[in-house]
C-alpha cells in the first residue's frame, strides 16, 4: 500500500499560476473544493478554467503554486493522483471505431481494474449511464448525449474519488443535456466530489453546491449560487453575477483550435 497523503479538501490550489508564452492563463488561483460537493468553475471563454483543470489532471506541469488532489501534490505524485481522478474533457471523446463496452473496458484495463472484476464493473457503469442497450454498438453510432454518458462511464469505471468535467454539456441538445444532468445528480447523491467547468449559468445553478467565477486567470468570486446572487441584490440571478464579474468580455479568448476540433469530432461521430 502506498503512503497515505494528508487529509484535507478534495481539491486544493494555492497560488497556481501558468503562462503560455507572454499570456498568463492562470494567475494566482486559490481554490478549495470540499469532499463530496459539486463545485462549478464558471467563466467566459479564455478565463483559465481549462488550464486550471489541465494542471489538476497532470496534463500541464505545476510551474508555480501548488495543486493537490485529496492531499496529494499532483506535481510530486502524478501517477497516484491520476488513480484518484476521473476526467471528462470538453470534446466528445469516445473512440468511434470501438463499441461502447470496448471503450469502457479499455479504461478499466488502463486503471488496472482487476481482471476478475472488470466485466462486472464495466457492465455496472454502462447500466448506471443507461447505456445497456447500446453497449455493443460502435460509439460512432451514438448521439452526443450518449457519447457524453459513455465518457462518464469511462471516467467512473475506476471508482474515482474526484470527478473533473470540462464543459460536460457543451454542444448537446436539450434532451442530451438533461440526460447528462440526471446522471450527474445521481453521482451527487453518491457523494462523489465533482469539479465542473461551465459557462451555462442554468447548469451551475441546477447542479452546483458552490461556484467560483473565474475571469482573466483569476478567481473573482466564490460561494454558493444564492450567496453570490445576494451580494448583487435581491433580484439578481447567477447570470447577472457572471456579467458583473466577466463584464462584456464573453467573446474574448477561447481557442479556435477547440472549436475546430469539436466540429471535427462531431463530424466523425456522425
Amino acid at each position: 500500500m502506498s503512503p497515505a497523503p494528508a487529509p484535507g479538501p478534495a481539491i486544493e490550489c494555492t497560488g497556481l499560476r501558468y503562462r503560455f508564452g507572454d499570456h498568463v492563463a492562470v494567475d494566482g488561483v486559490d481554490l478549495d473544493v470540499r469532499t463530496g460537493e459539486m463545485f462549478g468553475l464558471l467563466g467566459p471563454n479564455g478565463a483559465g478554467k481549462t488550464t486550471t483543470i489541465r494542471i489538476l489532471t497532470t496534463l500541464l506541469p505545476v510551474v508555480e503554486g501548488e495543486a493537490r488532489i485529496l492531499g496529494l501534490d499532483v506535481s510530486k505524485s502524478p501517477m497516484q493522483a491520476r488513480r484518484l481522478v476521473g476526467y471528462v474533457p470538453q470534446q466528445l471523446s469516445a473512440d468511434g471505431q470501438l463499441t461502447g463496452r470496448e471503450n469502457v473496458s479499455m479504461f478499466a484495463r488502463l486503471f488496472d481494474v482487476p481482471r476478475r472484476e472488470r466485466a462486472d464493473r464495466v457492465a455496472e457503469v454502462l447500466h448506471v449511464m443507461n447505456l445497456d442497450d447500446a453497449a455493443d454498438r460502435l460509439a460512432s453510432t451514438f448521439s452526443g448525449g450518449m457519447v457524453r454518458r459513455l465518457e462518464l462511464a469511462q471516467a467512473l469505471v475506476n471508482r474515482p474519488r474526484v470527478l473533473i468535467l470540462d464543459e460536460p454539456t457543451i454542444g448537446l441538445d436539450p434532451v442530451g443535456r438533461d440526460t447528462v444532468w440526471d446522471r450527474l445528480r445521481l453521482l451527487q447523491e453518491e457523494g462523489i466530489t465533482v469539479l465542473i467547468t461551465t459557462h451555462y449559468m442554468e447548469e451551475a445553478e441546477e447542479l452546483c453546491d458552490r461556484v467560483s467565477l473565474m475571469h482573466r486567470g483569476r478567481i473573482r468570486a466564490m460561494g454558493t449560487p444564492t450567496e453570490l446572487e445576494a451580494r448583487l441584490g435581491p433580484d439578481a440571478t447567477l447570470e447577472d453575477v457572471f456579467r458583473f464579474y466577466a463584464g462584456d468580455s464573453l467573446e474574448e479568448g477561447g481557442e479556435l483550435r477547440d472549436v475546430r476540433s469539436t466540429r471535427r469530432v462531431a463530424r466523425r461521430l456522425g
Binding site: 496534463l59 488513480r83 471523446s93 488496472d112 471535427r264
Partner: peptide
Amino acid sequence: WERDAGVLAKLLVTPT
C-alpha cells in the same frame, strides 16, 4: 486525431 477528439488527454490522465 485522438488529440483533437480529447482521447489522448484522457489516456494521459490514466496511471500510464
